[in-house]
């Protein structure tokens, strides 16, 4: 745990240093840029709550990727599952009218069903035709992208709008806000705790982790790996779908073109930096969210475009993952040397 923390912090520092070098080459002042970045994401109530609100889709898709990767299935379909989940929640919000205490849980469940449906397709293709989910989920992403684009351009198009988008969903389906504090974070925390318990404390989670580490051992030990595979795919799809549903319910309250943004791919990156660790996913999700939230302020104050953050994020991922590997190699080597010395002595 301490090693992880050290490599994480070191990696972030090195990556921010590399970012500073790029800024110096481009002729920007790194100190004012970074202080603008973090004051707009962490300095005060308003920035902090915005960071929290923006972290929800990142953490949920990251959680989805972490659980999938740690349990075996290479589910890279979070972008598609997020979009389908968002579409389900939007359509539910447009046609169903209930009081808020019923409406919000209903839309949340609809979003999860949407995501699970989309990952379920990939799971079925794997189960019955042994098609590799690595490729099928990627292709389903593109298909979901075009499908939702069609859905918001024709059947659910808002006739008063100039660009493809749906009308706003029923007000009862909006997540309540207190000042700038959006309750989507509460939903996320609840789901996170539940998933954490299932994954680390229940037999089911134990079996998933076992399968992820060694599927042959797990099968010989009596785990139903085929059934577990489908369960994990459905769960991770539901998590990604939930991320999409919450984006609609907390943010624009409608499905706009480009709604999914880069959330899901960022989530996949977060899972990778966190090495599929759930708590790590939460922390890195918050950190990435603070970068993205601050990017707008950074662009406002300095001349650095907000796209710079996208570059910085992938640099952070590469540096931390590579650094972790290097740290392991260095530690192993020193250990071997010490042992060799003990033997010769």
């Amino acid at each position: 745990m301490r090693k992880k923390f050290v490599s994480g912090v070191l990696g972030i520092v090195v990556a921010l240093g590399l970012g500073a070098v790029i800024m110096l080459i481009e002729g920007f002042n790194p100190i004012t840029t970074y202080s603008a970045l973090f004051s707009y994401s962490l300095g005060g109530f308003y920035p902090l709550t915005t960071t929290l609100r923006n972290s929800v889709p990142l953490i949920l898709t990251g959680l989805s990727a972490s659980i999938a990767f740690a349990s075996g299935p290479v589910n890279l379909g979070q972008p598609g599952q997020l979009l389908i989940g968002a579409l389900f929640a939007t359509v539910g919000g447009l046609y169903i009218h209930l009081p808020a205490p019923l409406m919000i849980p209903l839309l949340i469940i609809l979003a999860m069903i949407g995501g699970a449906l989309w990952s379920g397709i990939a799971a079925l293709m794997r189960r019955f035709f042994s098609m590799d989910e690595f490729i099928t989920t990627l292709m389903l992403n593109m298909i979901a992208d075009f499908f939702t684009y069609w859905a918001i351009s024709y059947p659910f198009f808002d006739k008063t709008a100039y660009s493809p988008m749906t009308p706003q969903i029923d007000k009862a389906g909006w997540l309540p806000e207190f000042g700038n504090f959006n309750t989507n974070i509460l939903v996320m925390v609840l789901v996170f705790v539940a998933v954490w318990f299932i994954f680390t404390r229940f037999t089911a989670g134990y079996e998933w982790r076992l399968t992820g580490q060694n599927s042959i051992f797990a099968r010989l030990g009596g785990c139903k790996i085929d059934k577990n595979y489908v369960t994990v795919m459905l769960l991770t799809g539901a998590l990604a779908g939930l991320a999409g549903g919450l984006v609609v319910m907390a943010g624009p309250h409608r499905f706009l073109k480009g709604l999914g943004a880069n959330y899901a791919w960022d989530g996949v990156m977060i899972a990778m930096v966190a090495n599929n660790d759930l708590i790590g996913t939460l922390l890195y999700g918050l950190f990435f969210s603070s970068l993205q939230t601050g990017a707008v302020g950074m662009e406002l104050i300095t001349a650095v475009p907000s796209e710079f953050i996208q570059v910085l994020q992938s640099v952070i991922v590469l540096v931390i993952v590579a650094g972790r590997g290097m740290l392991d190699i260095v530690l192993d080597k020193t250990q071997i040397k010490r042992k060799a010395r003990e033997r010769t002595a």
Binding site: D266, M272, E307, I309, L318
Partner: peptide
């Protein structure tokens, strides 16, 4: 550096999207 190929590939693809968008603007 012997980093995982899968992680490197995904990060590199996202790096390419970010870097080209950034340079497009710069």
């Amino acid at each position: 550096l012997k980093t995982d190929e899968f992680v490197t590939g995904i990060a590199l693809n996202l790096f390419a999207v970010g870097a080209t968008t950034y340079m497009l603007r710069q």
